[in-house]
């Protein structure tokens, strides 16, 4: 039994590629399915972006409402009649409005929706940039030392390693202190002389 399951799982994962349909379907009934698999696949894809107009946020592909079934059948009819995907969607929009589209169209009243995320990303990136410019200024202002050159770094690491190798440390570090500094140390020693292709 266990053998069967394991094999099944692997084969299922491998063989799943053939019939890529993607989304769930309680709603699609066997009698709706078109004989032509290409048309049927197109119908399923379209069904996923059309909203069932009486349902709460379900696509017609997910809904078992009567009207969702009517809409699925019409989608298939349009496709069989030779409509393109866009024509089929336009047919639905003409009757039920933009509300029927789960992917809102890009038009004046949805501009903010689509432009919003990239716009916010730009604002956030700008703020981050300003912040780091400020950091640079403050660092100069507060007189923090310049970052170590790779050569200095290697020398310092060597010194630290040497100190660490000594049997007795001058001051025992607290556990928390060690924990705080550990990642720093580990990164630093990762870049020390031996394996660092220092310039």
């Amino acid at each position: 039994m266990r053998h069967f399951l394991a094999i099944f799982a692997i084969v299922a994962a491998i063989s799943a590629a053939g019939l890529v349909t993607g989304s769930p379907a309680l709603a699609v009934e066997p009698d709706e399915v078109l004989a032509d698999p290409v048309l049927e696949a197109r119908a399923r894809e379209l069904s996923k972006v059309l909203r069932c107009v009486v349902c709460q946020n379900q696509s017609i592909d997910d809904s078992n409402a009567d009207i969702a079934r009517d809409m699925r059948l019409i989608v298939r009819e349009r496709l069989v009649a030779g409509d393109t995907d866009d024509q089929t969607v336009a047919y639905m929009v003409a009757r039920y409005g933009d509300y029927v589209l789960l992917r809102p169209p890009f038009q004046p009243n949805t501009m903010a929706l689509w432009v919003g995320p990239p716009f916010m990303a730009m604002i956030i990136a700008t703020l981050a940039l300003l912040f780091f410019r400020m950091y640079q200024r403050e660092r100069v202002a507060s007189g923090s030392p310049e970052p170590l050159t790779p050569t200095d770094r290697a020398q310092l690491d060597a010194l630290v390693d040497k100190l660490a190798a000594e049997p007795r440390r001058p001051r025992r570090q607290s556990g928390l202190r060690a924990e705080l500094e550990q990642p720093f140390g580990s990164t630093g020693s990762g870049g020390n002389g031996s394996d660092n292709p220092a310039t």
Partner: peptide, 10 residues
């Protein structure tokens, strides 16, 4: 007057 849906594709 304007109603849109924002669904999984978005």
């Amino acid at each position: 007057a304007s109603r849109v849906s924002v669904g999984p594709p978005y």
